[in-house]
Design a protein around this nucleic acid. Sequence first.
DNA 1: CTATATAGTGAACCAGGTTGTCTATCATGT
DNA 2: ACATGATAGACAACCTGGTTCACTATATAG
Lengths: 154, 154
Amino acid sequence: MSSQGFELPLRLLLAFRMLIDELHTELARQGHPDIRPMHGFVMQAIGPAGTTAVELGRTLGVSKQAAGKTIDTLERIGYVERSTDPHDTRRRVARLTPYGEDALDRSARIFDALRARWAGELGEERLQALESDLRRMTPDNLWRLDIPGWFGTL
Amino acid sequence: MSSQGFELPLRLLLAFRMLIDELHTELARQGHPDIRPMHGFVMQAIGPAGTTAVELGRTLGVSKQAAGKTIDTLERIGYVERSTDPHDTRRRVARLTPYGEDALDRSARIFDALRARWAGELGEERLQALESDLRRMTPDNLWRLDIPGWFGTL
DNA sequence: CTATATAGTGAACCAGGTTGTCTATCATGT
DNA sequence: ACATGATAGACAACCTGGTTCACTATATAG
């Protein structure tokens, strides 16, 4: 326990976990009780134009089968819907439903509010310094997170 | 994407993930190729006095069955061993093996080295400010992380 | 000595990941 | 025009790490 370095990763994880927990507590209150942390990432990755299982898998860094299963789940709970591409009948394009869009919109607003709370607690300058330092220590491409695959084998 | 608040949780997660990935790359090189990120948390939770499945489950916030399975895994790959408590023959106390202790020792040293790299990049003062800010925004009790249970339902 | 609480185990299940195999469809080169 | 190769999706079998329910064995209290 005398190791200095132990605290940093734990605090990073704890901070992340807190933000995500608060997000989902609030989302549940605002009519999205079934959404899971991962779904937010996935819906962001689906994007406004929609996507297929293969594309989504590439974006998220998981197999197309895993991406397909995740789309199945999101479809089941009403966040995405699939339609066949008339130009290529093999493709089944998944798009956000209005309910899915609503979840993303609310997530963005809730995250903004949480950030504002941090700014209120730490001061906007310190928070910007924190964000800048994290930006410096992490890769640029926020979108190659490989989140789902990574968590699975944790 | 115009939401300011989206970046903070992502950067926190990405930073955590980087540190953990680097830890495990280095652990693999130092003779611990089979250890998983979760195992480190669990071994910390087992502690020097050893623990039982029920206790471990309570500490980690998972069911005793899940804790038991995790101990099974750690036993199989040689990080813990079980013995029966002579005072209560129901209890099977799991303790770290020397190989398990070695993994924890090396983890501590590797985390220290990673923190030193951050200090070299950001400066010790900025890093301390970052740690202090994170400490301020997260709960005190580092050990009620509920890590395994939380990741499972992510 | 009986009744209740506790430790551990096993089984059935779920989510989300993997790989391998298969079909249907598209795209291309001769 | 057609054979060939690439791609999209689906299905199956499996892994890990969680869950709940049900059960046995042991300990402890009245």
